[in-house]
């Protein structure tokens, strides 16, 4: 099953150790086939709303910097517990903050 993990921005300022740990983590998960896709996100983004035939585009930012989504990872695991375990390892590396994790249906 696949899970999409989204990280809120903010938290500690990244240092050299965090970069190194994160690179090793990403490499390990990519090699084992667990990490299918990952990337950082522009915290601002833009918003699109529809009402009837009307489409409205609004440029961000919309929330406080620490509430914005800063990055995502799409992982393939056997169970929710495995997703939690990987999330735990990720949070250990990045320090204080918040992740949101959703199961992905499909493709």
């Amino acid at each position: 099953m696949r899970y999409l993990m989204m990280q809120k921005a903010g938290g500690a300022e990244p240092d050299a150790k965090l970069y190194a740990d994160m690179a090793a983590f990403v490499e390990e998960l990519t090699a084992s086939g667990v990490l299918l896709a990952t990337g950082g996100l522009d915290p601002a983004g833009f918003r699109m709303t529809s009402a009837g035939d009307e489409i409205t585009v609004t440029d961000g930012p919309f929330t406080e910097a620490k509430e914005a989504i800063g990055g995502f990872a799409l992982i393939e695991v056997r169970s929710k517990e495995e997703a939690i375990e990987l999330g735990r390892r990720f949070r250990k590396i990045v320090g204080d903050g918040e992740s949101m994790i959703h199961q992905v249906y499909g493709p």
Binding site: R78, S79, K80, E81, E82, I84, E85
Partner: peptide, 15 residues
């Protein structure tokens, strides 16, 4: 809270 044995099982499969 998730079941502890399920967590152990998940760690086991990964390691």
């Amino acid at each position: 809270m998730t079941d502890l044995s399920a967590t152990v099982g998940a760690v086991w499969k990964q390691e």
